[in-house]
């Protein structure tokens, strides 16, 4: 194409420059929601146990906490998509594009879970014992029935060694470091 075939760029639309107020406001809200989520996850269970004497609050109300946290995350997501990506002022088709993504992802979740969640009732230990191939019958690793493996001797629950460097495990750790460095 020769140069004179090209049109000079002269944008007809007014560029939607985000205002300082909106940019900083969204940032503030995002950080606030994030801190709130951390607060719900980390502090609230302890506070409940300490002040309201709720026994084992973290485990009892985990579903509630999880829902609140995912709700907070979703709000953050809405803010990012809506204002940072500026979908609120975008063309309808761009909005539709994004929304259709969430809808079809919803289909994916919904129909996959319609199988995996209803399957649980069938995969009881008794069912496995009666119906599974011989090599699986002693398996404890069936959905929902994972086994707790205690910490090895010389290790804390979180995997840190209790004192110094145990000889038996030194090699392993050296290896893992090497593997990472390369």
């Amino acid at each position: 194409m020769s140069e004179h075939d090209h049109h000079l760029v002269e944008a007809q639309h007014e560029p939607h420059a985000i205002s300082f107020k909106a940019a900083f406001g969204v940032t503030f809200l995002l950080i606030a929601f994030t801190l709130f989520n951390v607060f719900v996850s980390v502090c609230v269970p302890h506070l409940l146990e300490k002040f309201l004497k709720v026994h084992n609050a973290a485990a009892e109300y985990s579903t509630v906490f999880n829902c609140v946290i995912m709700g907070g995350a979703t709000l953050c997501g809405v803010l990012v998509v809506g204002l940072f990506m500026h979908i609120v002022a975008d063309t309808p088709v761009n909005r539709l594009t994004f929304i259709s993504g969430t809808i079809f992802l919803g289909f994916f979740f919904l129909f996959t879970l319609s199988d995996t969640l209803t399957r649980r009732t069938q995969a009881t230990p008794e069912f496995i014992k009666d119906h599974a191939p011989a090599s699986f019958r002693n398996s404890s690793e069936i959905p929902g029935k994972a086994v707790l493996i205690p910490a090895k001797e010389g290790y804390q629950k979180n995997g840190e060694e209790i004192e110094g460097h145990g000889h038996g495990h030194d090699h392993d750790h050296g290896h893992s470091h090497e593997g990472h460095a390369h």
């Binding site: 995002l30 989520n37 996850s41 906490f65 999880n66 946290i69 995912m70 995350a73 990012v80 940072f84």
Partner: peptide, 15 residues
């Protein structure tokens, strides 16, 4: 960033 916003609670906060 949007993806991280969901990854963070999924792996760190949800218990």
């Amino acid at each position: 960033e949007l993806i991280w916003i969901f990854l963070f609670p999924m792996f760190y906060l949800i218990k």
